[in-house]
Design a protein around this nucleic acid. Structure first.
Lengths: 212, 212
DNA sequence: ATTATATGGATATAAAAATATCTACATTCC
DNA sequence: GGAATGTAGATATTTTTATATCCATATAAT
């Protein structure tokens, strides 16, 4: 029960739902609303209101009795919790189809992420600019990471290249990897890997189809 | 306990892990292996072996005492469970960055999915072929769906268009929608919607970063 | 003032999922 | 042949997550 044992135990599922709330909150804030109730958020997100209440309480969102959660304060609470209140410098490795799609998505700045560089090995891609982001050769990873003080890696390379690139990233001191390659990466402790597997969602849809 | 009350209760998390196992199994099968143990699958996927055992038991994977799970039979069990043993005809609405990336991904055929048509409203996209898939105008949705007997919709349109397109899809009798637009869709009972929210994964990564 | 109502907050319960423990059994190795 | 080993299978436990119930309270209607 010491000073450092306070486990900030916000569940994974709660964390995954936060961006949904954020979107509705941004919208309400744009309309000048000061308060929003969990009931209203529930209608908008199709998440049960009781889950929303618990989620928002977990991140310390401010509320007003009988009125709802304070829009601005709740936005701040969520953004602070996720570290989205200031931008992390990110880069992307693998400027293929998916990589280009992510580079073309301008919404990351609302999610605390600023993609400032891309890397690839294909000669026809290196030197290009995609949505204003320069594509370097993968050989320059180390120098560019250090020069630009990059923090978060987005991995959209083929499976065969994923682990090799990862080893390089780890050697460069990268502590967060967002991995879209369908393979589990081997990293030392202290490096966070978030695995995105598009097949998981498809599997869920197919299973629902068969049973429903 | 009647004939129809048998609830095939395979958990969501189990379903989401199945594709991972499938990848390793394909690999081992390609190398001619007949058996694979849960321990080996655990090393490969970083999922605890006991979870793997339970998952595979849940879908009725065949095994051999003291030896492991039968590679071929387990592949069949998973594919059958997910309905990936024969191809579902799918189509994509919204051939923008992300849409094009999905159209360019040829791996869906291993996941029971064959994308046979795309739709968009932009004049410069309509009429194009992306990875051999024709892009129709969205106005033709109904006729093409009926003509080609399409079953699964992949939605990669902007948020503003998502619900409108969904209403059309529902009217066309579509029963499964894989939605990449970050908005909850309103659909009648009986229509399965699988929501993909890229921000959820990013939130998870950021939360890990902050706490780790 | 009084009452009705909708809300966040707190607590309790239930359901889902992960993890641990033990057993039986083939295979391999002496 | 006998013991050690590594496996699936079954069961039990714990942890996590979701859901339900009740309560105090601030607002609005009467």
């Amino acid at each position: 029960m010491g000073l450092f044992s306070k486990k900030n135990s916000v569940s994974v599922q709660t964390v995954r739902r936060l961006p949904q709330y954020l979107r509705v909150l941004y919208d309400r804030h744009a309309y000048g609303r000061l308060l929003v109730s969990s009931t209203e958020l529930a209608e908008e997100t199709q998440v049960p209101s009781i889950v929303i209440k618990k989620d928002l309480q977990a991140v310390g969102a401010p509320s007003k009795m009988r009125a709802g959660f304070k829009v601005k304060g709740t936005i701040s609470a969520i953004e602070t919790f996720l570290g989205w209140d200031n931008l992390n410098k990110a880069f992307l490795v693998g400027a293929g189809h998916l990589g280009a799609a992510l580079l073309g998505f301008s919404g990351f700045k609302n999610h605390g992420l600023e993609i400032v560089a891309a890397f690839d090995t294909h000669p026809e891609r290196v030197g290009e600019e995609i949505n204003g982001i320069h594509v370097y050769h993968t050989a320059q990873l180390k120098s560019v990471i250090e020069e630009k003080k990059l923090q978060i890696a987005i991995l959209t390379v083929p499976v065969s290249a994923a682990q090799g690139i990862t080893d390089t990233l780890v050697a460069c001191g990268i502590k967060a990897i967002w991995n879209f390659a369908p393979v589990k990466l081997n990293v030392p402790p202290g490096v966070a890997v978030q695995q995105e597997d598009i097949a998981s969602g498809l599997a869920q849809l197919c299973a629902t189809l068969k049973s429903g």
